[in-house]
Design a protein around this nucleic acid. Structure first.
Lengths: 333, 333
DNA sequence: CTGAAAGCGCTAACAG
DNA sequence: CTGTTAGCGCTTTCAG
């Protein structure tokens, strides 16, 4: 690959002048500019972004770090970030952590993150202390799921509120045996599932009902196939269920399929509510009643905070919980 | 951020020794190694990957460039690449081009790509000449859709074969008015839609039928909502349709919803076949009959070719078309 | 308007 | 086993 030096030699000027031309800086005579550009063209010169980053201390790119792109929720999050970032001219890359602590630790090694001017980080398995250890003047905003009492900006979905809304709606629609698929026991470590399970509990209590702990069906990687099997097994075991709050839309899709496998009709026999409002959820037959997590709001706030940090603000960390809303479709009566 | 120099000073050795320790090179006495590691810990030293890349000429990361992560097919492609790459210890980042030519051009600027040791590129809008212009000794493998007569390695899905299989199956199951949603006219520029439309035509001809050009319903960004509207409008216009080959599963999901909107039953009144075999397609009710594009094979081949290039092979470019298979589920009789 | 020098942080090559 | 030198390609600073 040709370098500035090569172009300089070819056009008979110094590297500095070439740099000035290439970067569109003023104070270059029209004649030399043309000569330089010719050489650039001729040699096919392209800046070396690595060298520029090293020198400049900035890379012009920001990273979004998510567990996996094939979890539709994260894919939609990534798309929302991409769209929101488009006007700013910043370049975005997506890093996948693999949903495991090890993966997160490696994708999040300080060294890696240092290559970016800013990072949006959707944490799943990391401990608070691990996040805290990240170099503190790296602009970084946490996204999503679990409460983290860190000194970093953090934008969360309304997990509790959404779960509460979803469950309350099922109860309002006369479901009296509302299972939560993807729920966790009371003493599980806090996380997305835990918070949503708490919302499920709260809705019961507000309605004067006692949540049936046997109806907490554990998560299985939040995948469709596993959820389908889980609800099937619950039915087979003779559990009486007339409503399901699925902790994600992916789970909900599996649940609907599993109910259908057992000859149960949705919503006539069992009503189902999901969480995420994926694109596909609107176009299922019947359409999935679900919680819209307002990813657009989450992303807008996160980028606002990130830009603030990137421009050097050292103020106190903000912890935001964004509002959600229930979207009623055909899987509820 | 502390640098090697800082660590060297703190531990009273030269930067080179610190470098040797940090990189686990042999020939360092146990005593100095310990002293250095202490200083590393104390100062919180982390290598600067930018500097290392500049020096080494390699970054240790490869890029997958796709139009958007929220197109489920590409998300699944990205996941497959991630999984396949995991054992190799290479780091992967996902670049989104935005499905527009401009986006691709910018994400694919030579400068950007140079930062990676290798690139898997899923081209959509680029012209052959633009791809050809990329610096030729950059290890790069093209993935996917349209035939490109370039000098680069290229792994394609069996677009034609899949469309032919899907359409033939509909005809075999007694559909006689098989629409293609997402199809394009004969003279459209070659691309995924064009190739799949050709497969739809071929299946008709092989069955001794004449494809009805009015049943080519144009693509609308391959989104669910648009496809739903498109099929609805076609029904409203009085077109007789008893089978639909949807060019992607996303389109198929929209089509199923649109048919349902009009009171048509799937598969009783209209049979539907998709293309992609997304995770969700298996768990729809009824399950979607679709073409499995064997992304696993595509990815395995692509990485094989990429590794070959990355290890310096200058041999002739390979152009592969991978086999596909039909997955029969509930949307066909 | 143009250029020379210095150095971003790292490592390969060679000396000691 | 440890240190010195040089330089990856670029841009900031300062001098012409």
């Amino acid at each position: 690959m040709p370098t500035l030096k090569d172009v300089a030699r070819a056009s008979g000027v110094s590297v500095m002048t070439v740099s000035n031309v290439v970067n569109g800086r003023p104070r270059v005579s029209e004649a030399t500019r043309r000569r330089v550009l010719e050489a650039v063209d001729e040699l096919g010169y392209q800046v070396n972004l690595t060298a520029r980053s090293l020198r400049a201390g900035r890379s012009g790119t920001i990273a979004l770090s998510i567990p996996r792109v094939d979890h539709p929720y994260f894919a939609e999050l990534a798309a929302a970030v991409t769209d929101a970032l488009l006007p700013s001219g910043q370049h975005l890359v997506v890093e996948q952590t693999g949903a495991s602590r090890e993966g997160e630790l490696s994708a999040l090694s300080q060294a890696r993150l240092q290559m970016y001017d800013g990072v949006l980080l959707s944490v799943v398995g990391l401990r608070d202390s691990e996040v805290a250890r990240l170099h503190s003047d790296m602009p970084l905003v946490l996204l999503g799921e679990k409460p983290m009492p860190t000194q970093r900006d953090h934008v969360m979905l309304g997990n509790f509120e959404g779960a509460r809304l979803a469950t309350a709606y099922l109860i309002e629609r006369d479901a009296r045996h509302v299972a939560i698929v993807g729920g966790v026991a009371d003493d599980a470590p806090a996380g997305m599932e835990g918070t949503r399970t708490a919302g499920w509990r709260a809705a019961h209590e507000e309605a004067g009902l006692v949540p049936d702990e046997r109806l907490i069906l554990p998560p299985d990687h939040f995948a469709m196939a596993e959820s389908r099997a889980t609800i099937g097994a619950a039915i087979d075991a003779g559990l009486e269920i007339d409503g399901v709050f699925a902790v994600t839309d992916q789970v909900a899709i599996g649940v609907v399929a599993g109910l259908h496998d057992r000859g149960l009709r949705v919503p006539d026999d069992v009503q189902v509510v999901g969480f995420d409002d994926l694109e596909v959820s609107e176009h299922l037959v019947p359409g999935l009643t679900t919680v819209d997590p307002r990813v657009d709001l989450v992303v807008a706030e996160a980028l606002r905070l990130l830009e603030r940090r990137m421009s050097g603000d050292e103020g106190a960390a903000e912890h935001l919980v964004m509002p959600v809303r229930l979207v009623v479709r055909g899987t509820t009566r």
